[in-house]
């Protein structure tokens, strides 16, 4: 069978890719996609922990359900904001919305 560490490593790599995406990308939608990657990496971890280490209480699985819920809400709101941004500034690139500075 597959040991727990494999899941953890997979999750770590996917999470790191998500981090890179968030930091490197300009387009807000792409940043959101990277965030989704990070959330899914976390979910893998949660479910793996629940299945391996905590089969009695399965809190991790329950948490995954909530994360999916919150992620859905977040995506919906964030995309609405992106559309708003685009409508106001004709761009979806976050580095072009840079008026909040010195």
């Amino acid at each position: 069978m597959v040991p727990l560490e494999n899941y953890l490593a997979l999750s770590a790599i996917v999470f790191a890719l998500g981090v890179y995406g968030v930091l490197a990308r300009r387009n807000a939608v792409m940043i959101l996609m990277s965030v989704e990657l990070m959330l899914n990496a976390v979910n893998i971890n949660f479910v793996a922990f629940a299945a391996y280490l905590d089969p009695g209480r399965i809190v991790g699985a329950i948490f995954a359900v909530f994360i999916i819920t919150v992620a859905a809400a977040e995506v919906g709101l964030a995309l609405a904001i992106v559309i708003r941004l685009f409508r106001n500034r004709a761009t979806a690139n976050v580095d072009e919305a840079a008026t909040m500075k010195w």
């Binding site: 069978m1 597959v2 040991p3 727990l4 560490e5 953890l8 490593a9 999750s11 770590a12 790599i13 999470f15 790191a16 793996a48 299945a51 391996y52 280490l53 905590d54 089969p55």
Partner: peptide, 18 residues
Amino acid sequence: LLVAALSTEWAGNTESPT
């Protein structure tokens, strides 16, 4: 993350999922 995940001694059955 990898160092943390792999260097930790996880308590419980890490071989097969339930």
